[in-house]
Write a protein that binds this DNA or RNA. Sequence first.
DNA 1: CCTTCAGGTTAACGACCGCTAACCTCCCTG
DNA 2: CAGGGAGGTTAGCGGTCGTTAACCTGAAGG
Lengths: 200, 200
Amino acid sequence: MATRTDAPTRREQILKEAARLFAERGFHGVGVDEIGAAVGISGPGLYRHFAGKDAMLAELLVGISESLLTGAKRRLSEAEAAGVAPEAVLDSLIEGHIDFALDDRPLITLHDRELDRLRDADRKLVRQLQRQYVELWVGAVRRLYPGLTEPAARSAVHSVFGLLNSTPHLTRPGSLPDRAGTAELLHRMARGAFAAAAES
Amino acid sequence: MATRTDAPTRREQILKEAARLFAERGFHGVGVDEIGAAVGISGPGLYRHFAGKDAMLAELLVGISESLLTGAKRRLSEAEAAGVAPEAVLDSLIEGHIDFALDDRPLITLHDRELDRLRDADRKLVRQLQRQYVELWVGAVRRLYPGLTEPAARSAVHSVFGLLNSTPHLTRPGSLPDRAGTAELLHRMARGAFAAAAES
DNA sequence: CCTTCAGGTTAACGACCGCTAACCTCCCTG
DNA sequence: CAGGGAGGTTAGCGGTCGTTAACCTGAAGG
């Protein structure tokens, strides 16, 4: 156990830079030499840490999907234990997703953009994790708005994801105004969108 | 002038298929041979119609940006002429954007995904058109909700674009339930999101 | 009927890219 | 102090991709 977050390992450095580059120029638009250069080694040195370029993307996408899902599960079980109201449960999910979207912008971008570049097995896994995550949201939404049909709730959830994942477009590089304000605005809009979806 | 929409020209066929392929697999992930094959000719035959692969993407992105902007301008001037209420103006913008997002899914996907693959001049042009489009929305939103600051309104507009542009994720290929229902749901959610953004 | 040209074809070139091979250091450990 | 593995390096191979060159063809027009 570390006193701090432990100096980032080489693998983590590589993953972080690869995520940034993939998000900026697309998976096929980035060469392994560029990824290497971004961490100070060059080209084939990456193969000491990853089996290939595909493996980096796979690890990024599986990682983000798992992280989103386990975070949501934790929040739901905590909420259930505390016996809070349905509104607070949904609020907690929204808050978690916003934190993620604001803190890991490149990953959020990759998440719904480069999924098809994965090998079949990895793509299936990621899709399954994503589906579970969506279903957690659908359940929380329908507990708060029982009038919503399941397909409508699912559509609404996907649309709110689109809203929350728009953060990469929000900030021209350099001018992120204040994180807290942006988070609160997004939160209000997400709740408003769900409420509007539920009105007849 | 034609009795119907005139049989699509070769150029239009090519653009349509290229848009679909680019949206599916990314600009760098599609080869010119595949685009050619999709319209029944093969590979280099495309160069009778376009200067290169880049030119196809440029024409697609400029076309969509112009189309969105002119559509919005037309709707705004019509609304002004009719002297309708601010709510109806925003509704008209929302409706236009939804129509576009539902009818030209691949283009909506490309629009915010492959912009950086353009030559400098084209990218500047597209960005300028997009900015104008956003500003039309910001104006309409602030006329309806004068309490919103301009940065807040702009963020809200970008977020609602994210919501509306989520349509490609909504329909697993083949099962689009009913267009009208989806459009109405999206419309309600967009309005709800704006209203929530405006509440303190 | 001959010409021309739009719209194709195939062959091939040059560049680039992912990846492997072969080799070179340190540093840690017995 | 040997030695061995972790983590680099450069050279280069094989394949792919965008693009060009050279050639073909069928239909329209004078």
